[in-house]
Amino acid sequence: MSVDAKARYAQSHEYARLEGDLVIVGISDHAQDELGDIVFIELKEVGKKLERGQVFGTIESVKAASDLYMPLSGSIEAVNDDLQADPALVNREPYGNGWLIKVKPNNAKDMEALLEAKAYASMVGEE
């Protein structure tokens, strides 16, 4: 499994990657592998303001449904509409075209509360 060195990670396996003044949020390669084939994704609408730890959507794999948690507080600026037709994008390109939402963070410094790539990799047992 791969880890995106440019991203930070939540304990609940969402990643957050700062690009300009927006944060790209998705799930890690490790998480998609654990979930198995992803068959459905439901995301909150653009404009929604959410606190860190609040649910921003649900991801359903062949096995089960899992909630998705905000890695940091902010408002949803974009959702990845391509996932409606092809949810397996998250399996194939979790850090690329399989991103979930773009967040305008309340405070970009909140990124620092998340795990660095190396720490996350060791948490999931992948060095």
Binding site: G36, D37, V39, V62, K63, A88, N91
Partner: peptide, 11 residues
């Protein structure tokens, strides 16, 4: 096994 490395949908 719930799925082999191939993955459930491909199987």
């Amino acid at each position: 096994p719930i799925s082999y490395p191939t993955g459930a949908i491909e199987e």
